[in-house]
Design a protein around this nucleic acid. Structure first.
Length: 119
DNA sequence: TGATTGACCAACT
DNA sequence: CAGTTGGCCAATC
């Protein structure tokens, strides 16, 4: 039932790539902007990933942006969810503990597209 | 059109 | 160990 996402064909291929990966993140898992960027082959442009996410919440639905945090496991984009504790609630609802705006045992919940989707 | 900024990351000082 | 710098690329000023 998921995978029901669509966007204007005027959107850049970059956004499409990012969403394609994020949407495939399983519940209870999380990944980092850098990991996605590397998987897409744009390693240095991790900032663009986060930037694309911010735009996603207003343009595209069904994008679990709350499962994407920075390399530190910190919920850097919480402010984009309308509330400063919305992102945390979403994660905890999936079984991911969050303390001080950062994911506990981030490595344990880490989901690397380059590894899971590998090849 | 040039400069600044951004839900980042890694290396360097 | 903390602050700075470079990189990457697109949007905004």
């Amino acid at each position: 039932m998921p995978g029901l996402f669509f966007m204007s064909m005027t959107d850049t291929n970059f956004f499409e790539q990012v969403y394609h990966v994020v949407i495939q993140i399983p519940p209870g898992r999380a990944t980092s902007y850098g990991a996605i960027a590397r998987y897409l082959g744009i390693g240095g442009s991790a900032r663009m990933v986060g930037w694309a996410m911010r735009a996603s919440h207003t343009q595209v639905a069904n994008v679990p942006a709350h499962r994407v945090v920075n390399r530190n496991g910190l919920l850097t984009g919480k402010h984009a969810f309308g509330g400063l504790d919305v992102m945390q609630q979403l994660l905890e609802a999936e079984g991911v503990k969050v303390v001080e705006d950062k994911i506990v045992d981030f490595e344990k919940h880490f989901w690397d597209p380059a590894k899971e989707l590998e090849r």
